[in-house]
Nucleic acid binder design. Structure first.
Lengths: 142, 142
DNA sequence: ATACATCCTCTAGCCGCTAGAAGTTCAAGC
DNA sequence: GCTTGAACTTCTAGCGGCTAGAGGATGTAT
């Protein structure tokens, strides 16, 4: 029987986060002591590890919910899990492409700045005038 | 004299977002008509363009606040603007490195999945057991 | 019995918007 | 001048994924 603090240490998840996962139904309600404190078993430890690892790979909590559900039904075909992972891979690749464009632009800005007064600063100049950009970097937060 | 809607179209910023920027002090309070509607001038259009462009390059609103401040003082040295841009570049590079590790892992997961039952699904298996990962991909949301 | 680390619930905040309700104003057409 | 209706106004609440803190209860070691 593990306390929430132990679970926290073992998985690298903050105590509040574990309670949050419970609140949104990602973790099941654990057993309680007489005094009302949570006690976990190993199945719950595994589940939390699964969640954390998935988060580290960038899956959203919604995606993780689906993955957990699939994981709970061993006889279902695994196409869906596959599709979720592929979707995630695609997202990661898109984000990388976007960051690459940003990096190019930022590098150029920094490179061209010769360090005088802000009036002549290339960094600020480029920010002022998008037409000076060589790359497209359109969507915000995409 | 531009309405908020015109400003919105010209900069690709949602009307609510412009009002939000005003609320947090990133955009100045504009003039108003007798009836109380906002009216903008070209200086404000430039400012909003600057903000948007900076956002597209991934700068935080706080960083943008500093950049705007620097831009407003042409005689100050531009080291600071430079430092902010360098910081941003570094962040972008860190995020890229992280995504690269994720991509590797996701690719491997997807590749190895042969499409049977979820019980044998490599995707789920890898998520269950971090030790199967080849790369480090530790920090969440970093 | 006491100390004190850990636990509990609850509320509110972070970023950067976004959406919607309910009401007002502006500008164009007749 | 009047009517229409698009665009404006303020206000509140929500998104994801936590995180922090107040104020109090519990568990365990000595």
């Amino acid at each position: 029987m593990l306390t929430i603090g132990t679970l926290s240490k073992k998985t690298g998840t903050k105590v509040q986060t574990i309670r949050y996962y419970e609140q949104i139904g990602l973790m099941p309600e654990p057993g309680r002591t007489e005094g009302g404190q949570r006690r976990y078993d190993n199945a719950q430890l595994d589940r939390l590890s699964f969640i954390r690892h998935s988060r580290q790979l960038g899956f959203s909590l919604d995606a993780i919910r689906e993955l957990l559900d699939l994981s709970d039904h061993p006889n279902r075909p695994c196409d869906e899990a596959d599709a979720i992972a592929r979707r995630q891979l695609k997202q990661v690749e898109q984000r990388m492409a976007r960051l690459k464009a940003l990096r190019t632009e930022l590098k150029r800005m920094v490179h061209e700045c010769s360090g005088g007064r802000t009036a002549d600063c290339r960094v600020l100049e480029v920010l002022r005038d998008h037409s000076e950009c060589l790359t497209e970097h359109d969507e915000i937060g995409a």
